[in-house]
Each structure stands twice: as structure tokens, then as C-alpha cells.
Amino acid sequence: MTLELGKYTSFVLSAYVITIVLLALLIIYVLWRNAKSKALLQDAELHKDA
């Protein structure tokens, strides 16, 4: 089925693009925070015995 979006193409595409961008930002934020927490914990565990 050929993809033919008619006159609303710009709306549909913009909606999808914005959603994907926002979701991507959210996922990046969550993963970044996850990595930061891992580093923080390792650092604390390291000094625990020192």
C-alpha cells in the first residue's frame, strides 16, 4: 500500500517526529541518570573500605 498521506502529510509527520524526539530525549535522560547513579555507587563502594 503506497504511502499517500494527502494534504495532512505535514501534520501527521510533524506529530510523529515530535513524539519520537521527545521519547528519545526521555530515554536518553533516563539512561544518562542510570549511568551516573552507577558511577556514584561504584565510587561510594570503593571508598567504603578505604
Binding site: R33, N34, S37, L41, A44, K48
Partner: peptide, 18 residues
């Protein structure tokens, strides 16, 4: 996302307690 988020919160709390 919530699971990952909770895990990071737990790690941060654990680090601060240590």
C-alpha cells in the same frame, strides 16, 4: 523507564547512605 529510573534512585540513595 520506571524500572531503570527506580534502580538509579536506589543506587543514588545507597551511595549517599554509604
Amino acid at each position: 523507564l520506571v524500572l531503570i529510573g527506580t534502580r538509579s534512585e536506589i543506587r543514588i540513595r545507597r551511595a549517599s547512605v554509604i
